[in-house]
């Protein structure tokens, strides 16, 4: 590790280093009120999701009161009950883990596939690029929601399958972005410099190009979390969520039939998803702004 760091320092030696790029980005990010608001919001949600279940330990599956009790009417279920009589508040608190986990997992899968495909295509070009880009286009023209529905239908509607399905249908844009970045950077002088000191291809991809291609990919990955959460909610709305894991998406899916009689069973988890996606988007935008000035300076 130490050795490779020194090699990097040698490769990038010509560029003056005023401030570490991460701390510079963080400084830029802090200046962005909207982004900080998003971060605080997300922190709050994560807190509810992680600490909440310890404080409010009602099992979200448990039937606690009469079905379809409106919010504010019964102390046992302060935010009302769903069509089976399950506590909405417990659902909101306990359902966050699954929703956030699906979002993170799907974003992780998206970035992994997208980055691998994009990096290989953008670096090696030629036949590799042709094949990988045709595959990407194939996935790109598939209607994402339909394809995800088919996957979930074919296998099962467990949370894992849902996350994988979302990941599988959302990677092409990331791949395109990664490819474009790699195409741009592979011809820059410091890459030639690395090659001239004898760095092998994997090393150039991993240690030289990737760190410099990361900023836009981080932004894209952050936004993907939001999209993935919305996607999960969409699948749930169509009744394809995992009935054995309490998630906000599942709450929406199961409350949908009674939306005319019980708005709270759908609106409250919908609100949580809205807040989460808003927070993630604000952070994503903030990151984008934080990374971009650096590019402009260059």
């Amino acid at each position: 590790m130490a050795q490779s760091d020194s090699t990097d320092a040698m490769i990038q030696g010509g560029i003056p280093k005023a401030e570490h790029p991460v701390s510079e980005a963080w400084r830029m990010f802090q200046r962005n009120t909207a982004a900080m608001f998003g971060l605080v919001l997300l922190g709050f949600l994560v807190l509810i999701t992680l600490i909440g279940p310890l404080v409010y330990s009602v099992d979200p599956f448990e039937i606690v009161w009469a079905p379809l009790t409106p919010p504010g009417q019964e102390a046992t279920a302060p935010l009302g009950t769903d069509y089976l009589g399950r506590d909405i508040l417990a659902g909101l608190i306990h359902g966050g883990v699954a929703t956030l986990a699906v979002g993170l997992a799907a974003a992780f899968i998206t970035v992994t596939i997208g980055l691998t495909v994009g990096a290989l295509a953008g670096f090696y070009l030629g036949l590799v690029d042709d094949i990988l880009m045709r595959v990407t286009e194939f996935f790109q023209v598939l209607p994402a929601l339909m394809f995800a529905m088919v996957l979930v239908t074919l296998f099962s509607s467990s949370l894992t399958v849902v996350a994988i399905a979302i990941g599988l249908v959302s990677w092409p844009p990331t791949a395109r972005l990664a490819r474009a970045e790699f195409l741009r950077i592979r011809n820059l002088e410091y890459v030639s410099a690395a090659r001239s000191v004898g760095a092998k291809n994997p090393r150039i991809i991993w240690r030289v190009i990737l760190p410099n291609a990361l900023p836009p990919l981080i932004v894209s990955a952050t936004l993907t979390i939001g999209t993935a959460i919305l996607f999960e909610a969409g699948l749930s709305f169509l009744g394809l969520s995992d009935p054995n894991t309490y998630s906000w998406g599942y709450m929406i899916g199961s409350g949908r039939d009674n939306i005319l009689d019980a708005w709270w069973a759908v609106t409250l988890p919908g609100g949580m998803i809205f807040i989460t996606v808003l927070a993630v988007s604000l952070i994503g935008d903030g990151l984008n702004d934080a990374f971009n000035p650096k590019l402009r300076e260059r």
Partner: peptide, 21 residues
Amino acid sequence: AEYLKPQLKKVGIEVEVRAAP
């Protein structure tokens, strides 16, 4: 089916609801 999950838990039977598309 969803009702059975919490209900049978009361007598110690874990129920997995298997949705069919």
